[in-house]
Design a protein around this nucleic acid. Structure first.
Lengths: 360, 360
DNA sequence: TTGAAAGCGATACCAG
DNA sequence: CTGGTATCGCTTTCAA
């Protein structure tokens, strides 16, 4: 096994392809201006000239220097994402990665790059400032907002284009966001359990500093209220989006004197823990206890979570990333425009199966 | 599903705190040169002046423009990572993300940023070229090399600093890499099964275009050879690092007339599938069939993979990312230096328990 | 120890 | 349609 390195007649004086606009224009006996215009597709340039220029550019392997371009244009053609270390764990990752993959593709299509800042949690705010103040990026994305998220206030003050994936209740100033209708999704999920006859329904939620978690709780409570069922605080827990947390939370709730006959889980990893808790209590899912989950249907979980619903969620996160990127690029290109926002409905929740009701 | 779009009006003033070096130096009645030198810690500047400068910079919230800085210095102070979409799935993600988190922190500590290019698989090579030719980054990282990886040949030709996580057998020209000793780890794992008395041992490997997979197979075969056990091709499979692939591969092997009494799995996700296959065949892990896995001990897997070993693997990937980043920054700073490489031993494999031997 | 001036490599305005 | 020239904001010789 060996490598064949291909040599062609390309002689390298300096670094290969390191000629710049001036040298190229000298070769062509044209001004830098004209060459630049020809390459950038300006309409006023003669088509014959343009052809000559593009061919020469190709022949000499001319590559415009991005550093010079960004200085001259005042735009870095890049978008910043800040990732605090603590979010860099567990399945949350998947959501993060899928979102970024969706966004990254859109950036690439528009000639933008993605600049990542991975920081310790304490440095998160400063990372946004660094991005903005030094002109390192043209815009930024905010993921996973909390209630009253300080990042949003900061970014508004910095006056840099940004789009939030999610919303932060408590912030009055308008800003661009894209969110899924958490309230409605969880209300519908809870409602479907109520329709099966359940009246004692547990909620294992994410950390309720997170805005989405608050909205999910509100949806859960709204469904109970509509059905005239009093909310019992003993049946609800909030904590990390992790399997262990789902487990311990569900155990606590199941240990209650009057345990629930059904659970609403705020994520697939939480549902995994809930499932383990239920099984360890000698109960059977879909018979003794029903579980419904925002991301997915727990009944498929043994198969490593590769269910159609899970795939749907992942691709919808991917789509959200792409859409946020598009919104951001629009904002970058038309700085004056009022922020536009979108609320998506979580269609994939609809088909989740929960097993029979409590009296089946 | 419908979308609600909200419109509001925002007023934009000038960016706050956008004064530049010239204005700052004017305020100070000093030259730009001196101010620049003072801020960048050059020794020749008077300490009194420096103090005056830094205080003014603080007062006026001066932030040097990175775009100008990179043009003037010729360094972008950023490192490129290219992520092809196909690798953006499943648990591979975790390895990717952990690695990048480790690297990203190191970059941040050294004032570098990380530039990501998420591309469709076909565009991967060009993404590296784009990074290098246009001076967008000072160096790049290569993850998951295949045998004879074309990216490495390309990067060598582009003459840009880079570090490979893993190695590509077949490439003669020296380059910097950091790898884990796959051969030795899998050989030890196989050996431990042999020590338990197994003589028919299956191997469910990753895709054998990947260099690490080739090395793992070699390690497996070496252990068999040492024990005088003939290798039976019917007992080995290679494919995606995924649960479904582990499942189908294990099923095929188990359907063999003379099925194995033990498996070596090349990753934790594959092991998950192998486990499912074994259970569906009515066999018991650790009793009828032993399984050992590169990343982890399968006996813990029901608990969503959150085992000490798994954590150890994740943190070792994190460390690898950090180390690669460090190696790369060194290469960037001393361009002439010969490439240095590191081979790490996979210590965490040693303690994996596999259950009793075949005759227990 | 400080400053004037020449880059860095593009873009973009204003003439012609 | 094409060209001269200022500009972007900082770094870095070279002189003083």
């Amino acid at each position: 096994m060996h490598v064949r390195i291909e040599h062609t007649i390309t002689l390298c004086y300096q670094q290969a392809g390191t000629l710049n606009l001036r040298e190229l224009s000298k070769q062509l006996k044209l001004s830098q201006t004209t060459v630049s215009r020809a390459l950038n597709g300006y309409p006023e340039v003669n088509e014959a000239t343009r052809k000559r220029v593009t061919e020469a550019a190709e022949k000499y392997q001319y590559r415009p220097n991005v550093r010079a371009q960004t200085l001259a244009t005042g735009k870095s053609k890049s978008v910043g994402h800040v990732i605090p270390l603590s979010k860099q764990s567990e399945l949350v990752n998947m959501v993060f990665s899928d979102f970024m993959a969706g966004a990254g593709l859109v950036y690439a299509e528009h000639g933008y790059t993605m600049t990542l800042s991975i920081v310790r949690d304490d440095d998160e705010l400063d990372a946004y400032s660094a991005f903005a103040e030094r002109g390192a990026v043209d815009g930024v994305i905010v993921q996973g907002p909390t209630c009253d998220d300080p990042r949003i206030a900061r970014l508004l003050r910095l006056n840099i284009p940004f789009v939030v994936h999610g919303r932060a209740s408590g912030i009055e100033t308008p800003y661009a966001w894209l969110d899924v209708n958490n309230h409605r999704a969880i209300k519908a999920a809870t409602q479907s359990l109520i329709d099966l006859g359940h009246r004692r329904i547990g909620l294992i939620n994410g950390r309720e500093q997170m805005d989405f978690a608050l909205r999910r709780r509100a949806g859960y409570e709204a469904a109970l209220a509509d059905a005239g069922i009093p909310a019992d605080p003993a049946l609800t827990r909030s904590g990390d989006m992790s399997e262990p947390n789902g487990y311990t939370a569900a155990c606590e709730v199941l240990a209650y004197q009057n345990p629930p006959t059904a659970f609403v889980a705020s994520s697939i990893v939480i549902a995994l823990g809930v499932k383990r808790a239920i099984e360890e209590h000698g109960l059977t899912i879909g018979k003794d206890v029903s579980v419904i989950c925002f991301d997915d249907d727990i009944s498929y979980l043994p198969n490593a979570g590769r269910t159609p619903q899970f795939t749907a969620m992942r691709s919808s996160v991917h789509a959200a990333g792409a859409r946020c990127a598009t919104l951001l690029l629009e904002r970058i290109k038309t700085p004056g425009a009022p922020p536009s926002s979108e609320l998506w409905e979580a269609e994939f929740v609809q088909g989740a199966s929960t097993g029979p009701g409590p009296h089946a």
